[in-house]
């Protein structure tokens, strides 16, 4: 079976390719700004408080679900989604993830921020892949005005959309996975699943100090701006930013020493106290089974029926 080739004039190129890209780019930038504004407004301005433990909507089944079941189920489901091969199956996974996110009432702005973080990489795939995938028999091609190297291949577009759908489906599960329990509880669940306790402690500590250091960095850059520093494309900017980084490292390394000394002075011995007592009950396993059954159904649909 030979490939189908459609010839269309070159002036369609801006209409069909460049215009959508520009619209997408403008939309993403605009949405990112509004989403950032919204999340910044309802958040505590003190960044030293980690924002992950969202207690405002505690009551859904995901909040009550045993944290170990939740982690195992969502991780397994993510890998299943990553293995889906057809666009329809991947879109079904997106619908499933979206319904979970809606069910536990994730704030739309936070969900949007997570998806927008993906936009750069996925946008690159969506733009590049239709023009670069090798031509296979049976492909549908669009040639713009006889320019041979500028050939749009629909198989590439389909492939890139499938990847984008898989990425979106997994990204939308991050909020249900992480914001339905305080981070220490999630990490405790991970430890009970066999992750070394030290790893969990390191995540907890660095999550805490990311906020402290970003506060520090913001103060330093405010000071630089007050003194008239503006970022440009030149070596002076590079040198200044490097000094800024160096200062950030010096300050934070010194702080690290003090934090560590303080922890040891309070009797830290490789352990934090356990945040909760976990107990497994039948309903936890039932939700787990139902979700994994949905995953299995997706795989069957993807591999056998489609």
């Amino acid at each position: 079976m030979a490939e189908t080739i459609h010839h269309i004039p070159l002036w369609y190129l801006p209409l069909l390719v460049i215009l959508p890209i520009a619209a997408l780019w403008a939309g993403v930038t605009g949405l990112r700004k509004t989403a950032r504004k919204k999340t910044a407004a309802d958040r505590d301005p003190d960044w030293s408080v980690p924002p992950l433990a969202d207690q405002s909507q505690s009551g859904s089944f995901l909040h009550k679900w045993d944290v170990r079941c939740k982690i195992v189920t969502i991780v397994v489901f993510s890998f299943v989604v990553a293995s889906l091969g057809h666009l329809a199956a991947a879109l079904a996974a997106v619908a499933l993830s979206l319904s979970v996110a809606v069910m536990i009432k994730v704030p739309a702005a936070r969900l949007m921020l997570r998806l927008l973080a993906l936009a750069g990489f996925l946008g690159m795939l969506l733009v590049v892949m239709p023009f670069t995938v090798p031509v296979h028999p049976g492909d549908t091609l669009v040639v713009f005005g006889g320019v041979e190297w500028l050939t749009l291949n629909f198989r590439g577009l389909l492939l890139a959309s499938t990847i984008a759908a898989r990425a979106v489906a997994i990204a939308m599960l991050m909020e249900p996975l992480l914001s339905t329990a305080p981070l220490p509880v999630t990490l405790h669940g991970l430890c009970r699943l066999g992750v070394p306790e030290m790893a969990a402690q390191m995540v907890l500590l660095s999550n805490r100090y990311v906020h402290v250091f970003s506060h520090e960095a913001r103060r330093m850059s405010a000071g630089m701006q007050v003194r008239g520093f503006r970022k440009r494309t030149d070596t002076a900017t590079l040198r200044t930013v490097a000094n800024f980084l160096g200062m950030l490292f010096v300050r934070s390394f010194e702080r690290t020493e003090r934090v560590f000394d303080a922890m040891r002075a309070r009797g830290y011995q490789d352990r934090f106290p356990e945040p909760v007592n976990l107990r497994l009950c039948a309903s936890d396993l039932l939700i787990c089974l139902a979700w994994l059954a949905a995953a299995a159904a997706l795989v069957v649909w993807d591999r056998i029926i489609l």
Partner: peptide, 25 residues
């Protein structure tokens, strides 16, 4: 292993540093 908490705190400094954007045209 006692020093691993230090690594965690240093990591946050690198994390914050990696958020700095350099203008490029």
């Amino acid at each position: 292993s006692v020093q691993l908490p230090k690594v965690a705190v240093v990591t946050s400094a690198f994390f914050v540093a990696s958020l700095v954007h350099i203008p490029l045209g």
